[in-house]
Design a protein around this nucleic acid. Structure first.
Lengths: 149, 149
DNA sequence: TATTGTTATACTCTATAACTATA
DNA sequence: TATAGTTATAGAGTATAACAATA
C-alpha cells in the first residue's frame, strides 16, 4: 500500500489522497490525548483556535466557517464560555449579533495545545533525511493551495 | 496563513500539520456528498473499503484496526450486512469467530466511491504546474512514511 | 418581513456493562 | 476460566423546527 502508483496523474490523486488522509488521521489520534486531557471536544478546540487567530467573530460566521448549523455552534460557544475560555459581548451597532473573543486563559490553552500537537510531528520529522525534509518544505504550500476554494 | 514559516524545523512541523489537516478536511467535505448519497456513514465506508482490500477479517480485528470498541463494530457490520454489502460466515475451525467478506455489490460500491473521491483531487491537480505535481509525487511516499508507527 | 441567535427536541454514532456461546 | 461476538443502555455531538429579539 505504501508504494501506491503515483506515476500517472490519476495515480497521483489516489496516492496523495490516501497519504494525506492517513497522516491527518494519525495527527488526530496523536492529539486525542490532549483532547481528553483538556476536556474539550474536537470542534470546541478548533473553534477556540479559529477565534484566537481571527478575533471578534460572530456565532453565525463561525457556524459557516466550521460547516455546522447555528444551534450546534451555540452549544459549542456556551461550553467554551462556561469554561471561561471565550466571552460573549453585544455587537456595537446591531444588537441582534453577538461578538466573541478569547480570554487570556483561552489563549494560553490554545498555544499549549498547538505546541503539543506540533511536538509529535517535529519528532517524526527528525527521523527523515535532510533531502526528505526539503521535499516536504516545498510540498507544504502546494498542499495548502490545493485545499483553497 | 498560507505562508506559514517552514524554514525552521519547528516551523515545518507547524506548517505541514496545518496544510495536511486542512487538505484532509477539504477531502472529507468534498466526499460528504457521496457519503450522503450512498446512505452510509463515514466508518461504514471505511470498513467496507478495508474489507474489500484485505479479505476475510473478523469483527474483532476490524474493531482494533479502526480503533473502535467491538460493540460499535457489530453495529457497523450489521448495517452493512442489511444493505447486502458484506456477509457474515462462520469460522471454519473456531465457531466463536465470524468471518466477513464483501459481496459483489459491496465491491462495486467501494470502487465507485473511490473513483469519485479521487476525481475532485485529480481536477485540482490539473490546475498545478508540472513542477508542483513533481514535488507532490515525491512528497506522497514521505507523508505515508510519517504516518506509519 | 428578514435576520441573528437561542431553546426544545430528535437522531446518529460510539462507549461501557452485562450476557451468550464456544474454546 | 478466557475469548469472540452480541445485546442493552447511556452519553456526546449535531441536526431540524419553533421561538424571541432586533433590524
Amino acid at each position: 500500500m505504501t508504494s501506491t502508483q503515483t506515476r500517472t496523474d490519476a495515480g497521483l490523486a489516489n496516492g496523495l489522497r490516501i497519504s494525506v488522509s492517513r497522516l491527518a488521521r494519525r495527527l488526530r489520534v496523536e492529539r486525542a490525548g490532549d483532547l481528553a486531557e483538556s476536556g474539550l471536544s474536537d470542534t470546541q478546540i478548533t473553534v477556540l483556535a479559529v477565534l484566537e487567530r481571527k478575533i471578534a467573530m460572530s456565532p453565525g460566521e463561525l457556524a459557516e466557517h466550521e460547516k455546522v448549523q447555528p444551534p450546534s455552534m451555540t452549544r459549542v460557544i456556551t461550553a467554551l464560555e462556561e469554561r471561561g475560555l471565550v466571552q460573549r459581548a453585544p455587537h456595537l451597532t446591531d444588537r441582534r449579533q453577538v461578538v466573541l473573543t478569547v480570554t487570556d486563559e483561552g489563549k494560553r490553552l490554545v498555544n499549549q495545545l498547538r505546541r503539543r500537537r506540533d511536538a509529535w510531528l517535529a519528532m517524526r520529522l527528525r527521523g527523515l533525511t535532510q533531502q526528505e525534509r526539503e521535499t516536504l518544505r516545498a510540498a507544504a504550500p502546494i498542499l495548502e493551495k490545493l485545499s483553497q476554494a
